[in-house]
Amino acid sequence: MNKRDFIAIGIVIILSALGFLFLNFNLKNDAQGGETVKISVGSDIYGTYPLNENKEIKINTKNGFNTVVIENGSVFVKDADCRDKYCVKQGKIRNGSIICLPHRLVIEIESNDKSIDAVAG
């Protein structure tokens, strides 16, 4: 290895870090507005959505479907074909999570400041 190698490696590492920070920064701007809704099925992340944008999400899991609605800063499950419909009954939430056990569906509200490590309840 010679001097040229080290310079090249140095440049690549710096460029990588910069490029990455740039991407990262852009992404942060996209997700601005406090909180996001993270939906996962089993252990896979289905998607994340800003809490302040109204949206209806139809989720087909292999166990059945759930219709999740984000509306005026809260989330609720509008409809589902699970047995107990407990996810629907939980109503609108602004914090914490809605879990549909039969469908292995988890809807979590995550605050962007990431200051909370866990929620007891």
Binding site: I93, N95, D117
Partner: peptide
């Protein structure tokens, strides 16, 4: 929730307590 030690940076864990009224803050 159960915690062991502190966070890797040495700060305390923050555990929010759920509000029975889920449509308001912790």
């Amino acid at each position: 929730v159960q915690t062991l030690g502190t966070k890797p940076d040495g700060s305390l864990w923050t555990v929010a307590i759920e509000n029975p009224d889920k449509n308001s803050g912790y």
